[in-house]
Nucleic acid binder design. Sequence first.
RNA 1: GGAGGAGUAGCGAAGUUGGCCAAACGCGGCGGACUGUAAAUCCGCUCUCUCUGAGUUCGGCGGUUCGAAUCCGUCCUCCUCCA
Length: 415
Amino acid sequence: MSEEITATPEQEKEIDRQVQALQRGVVEIVPEDAFREKIKKAVVTGQPLKIKLGMDPSAPDVHVGHTVVLHKLRQFQEFGHEIQMLIGDFTGKIGDPSGRSETRKVLTSEQVAENAQTYVEQYGKVLDMDKATLYYNSEWLSQLMFEDVLKLAGNLTVARMLEREDFHNRYTSNQPISVHEFFYPLMQGYDSIAMDTDIEVGGTDQTFNLLMGRQLQEAYGHEKQVALTLPLIEGLDGERKMSKSLDNYIGVDEEPNEIFGKAMSIPDDLMIKYYKLATDVPLADIDQLEKDLADGTVHPRNTKQRLAHKFVAMYHGEKEADDAQRYFQTVFRERALPKDIPEVEWKGQATVPVINLLVELDMQPSKGEARKMIQNGGVKINEEKVNDIKTEVDVEDGMIVQVGKRKFTKLTVSE
RNA sequence: GGAGGAGUAGCGAAGUUGGCCAAACGCGGCGGACUGUAAAUCCGCUCUCUCUGAGUUCGGCGGUUCGAAUCCGUCCUCCUCCA
């Protein structure tokens, strides 16, 4: 940022366009003026910026929460910038400090490669992966000598480390912090040096790590990266951030019907946020939607249905989205039987107690469970509720067994 | 190295003068009703089973006792503080 770069009026326009678009939806850009400078330089010189996103090398479970960042990267891509996808295969060996630091099992390079491939596939639902570059941080981190590590660590004080929110919280509440956890942000920062990153993106929980990159880059005489943080999105419970371990997520790799249903189960209040952060619906349209919702012009259910449709379409395709919507409407709105019910050939007795039927069909894990399910009124045969636990069922070809609202099985009997 | 604290069902958390404990309560999960949806709200279930009874639980093992999650011994694990 030393030499003055001058932009033509047209270039200024383009800079404004990019800055404005890229600022949308972010929580924080640190620092804002450097951000603009970077964009400016890129526009004037035609040299794309390097935008980094780091990821854990363990088995990917990409969900809607992650896509918030991906949608932002997608925007960068559309402006011609270069995406650096960093697989933290070395960092992953150490263990992520933000978790309850269970010792992580070391992945083989085959597993890492496999997981990276899965990332490429799943991220590809939002990003153009052909235009992204994959990096592995073991490439440079494994080369460092202890002396290098000391030099790296020398840039930082314990007090500074403890500024990090989760370290601070743990420290003040007498929770343990392992020394090696301090190296996590250092390594992440070093990655930015190695990759010459211009902008690093991440969720707000990454703020400290992203800033660490700036500090270290400066110490090593590199141009400092800009940190861009995005909101963490709440999961299906509407309370806690979306994550696999809380089982409140919508995975991009899940079945269409599952994605649709899960999307329909998000709290109404969260719909707009999901629209804004996890879809590519233009902001103007979303604003309109918000207005219509507020004055009752549109029905919340329909708005949510559009969102659900959007998700399935993004991750699977339009046709699948239509099918999922149809399925949802028949099963949940009309309480009717869906079109495609999985068929199972019945090979057991012609007459069986319901309880055994459910267990043998694998629709209930045990007879005890099956019994409870019937007592709760959750079992139907040919759309008739089964009231008596002792009911004997005469199995017929085409008989439909239903457990709860969502589990259906059609029996076939061959002579 | 020394001192102290804790380990209860998927999670959190009661219960520790021994029986009324299969174990409160909250969350989560699963059903049902209702509806605007797998929203919200309300109701029921939630250790296992050959289920109106039986079996196995409260970190592990062993003991005291007619009887222990609750008492004793020992081991394991985790945490904190001092050095």
